[in-house]
């Protein structure tokens, strides 16, 4: 039993001890890792905070409309809506809550339908601020995509759009005449393409329509976006060349924030 062994086996012995140490260290590390995660209630605390804010908050912001309010194209998923919310929450120390009811791809007719829902109406009644992006899908679908603009059908959908917008704003103001409504204007995502003149003229027409509708109400504000994406569309548009990217949303948010601060709702009027 105590015969002389070859040299390499005696070398293997400390090596196996090393294996033992490495593996037990790995085991120790994994228990550390897995128990650490059970101990500290990390980021999830944030979420609960927001939940409780929703109940006893002073200001309430409501988002309606299409993918722009939803935040499509922003790689963080925030969009202008959450960016505004986060900025204001930081300033106001969390007295702001929000609900985003926007549906990606929604047209104005669909928004009219959505606003008939009871839950939506009750949220509108609660709101201090309502931000809306609507019309992009009406315009760019109604005209059969702007690459081949069909002016006739674009005009038809514009008439329908104006009607819908009127209904939407009427519904909101009748439900809640204290809320301030911010309607974003449209921008031209195709301003660097060949048909730029036609498409921009069309967008301008629609913007005019929004402006005119907004003028009928005291507390409806139109927030233009056309200029934001006019000169450098690629810098501010997402890779789908239609939705804004994160920087684009930041620009929209920066435009909206000072306006919100002009009318800080009912409770904190200064």
């Amino acid at each position: 039993m105590k015969k002389r062994r070859l040299n390499w086996t005696s070398l293997l012995f400390p090596l196996s001890a090393l294996c033992f140490i490495v593996l037990s260290f790995g085991f120790f590390l994994s228990t550390q890792e897995l128990f650490k995660t059970t101990d500290q209630p990390k980021s999830s605390g944030n979420v609960q905070d927001q939940g409780s804010k929703l109940q006893d908050s002073d200001l309430f912001m409501l988002g309606l409309g299409d993918s722009l309010t939803r935040g499509i194209g922003d790689k963080t998923g925030d969009g202008y809506f959450d960016q505004v919310k986060k900025t204001l929450q930081a300033e106001k120390k969390g007295t702001l809550s929000s609900v985003n009811l926007a549906i990606s791809g929604q047209t104005s007719s669909e928004l009219v339908k959505q606003m008939k829902q009871e839950k939506v109406q009750s949220l509108i009644k609660k709101a201090d601020w309502i931000t809306i992006t609507i019309g992009g899908n009406d315009l760019f679908r109604g005209s059969g995509r702007l690459e081949s603009i069909d002016l006739k059908s674009a005009n038809q959908s514009k008439i329908q759009y104006e009607k819908n917008l009127h209904m939407i704003l009427d519904t909101i103001t009748s439900l809640n005449h204290d809320a301030v409504v911010y309607v974003f204007g449209l921008y031209n995502p195709f301003s660097d393409l060949a048909d730029e003149k036609t498409s921009s003229a069309l967008v301008a027409e629609w913007n005019l329509a929004i402006q005119q509708r907004a003028a009928d109400y005291d507390r409806v504000v139109m927030v233009p976006t056309f200029d934001l994406f006019q000169l450098q569309p690629n810098a501010y548009l997402y890779s789908d060349h239609f939705h804004p990217n994160q920087a684009g949303y930041t620009r929209m948010a920066n435009r909206l924030i000072p306006l919100l601060q002009d009318h800080p709702g009912e409770d904190t009027s200064k």
Binding site: V22, L23, S24, F25, G26, F27, F28, L29, S30, E33
Partner: peptide
């Protein structure tokens, strides 16, 4: 690190 941890657990 993941492999180290997985082998540690498997070792156990």
């Amino acid at each position: 690190k993941y492999i180290l941890m997985a082998y540690g657990l498997a070792w156990f």
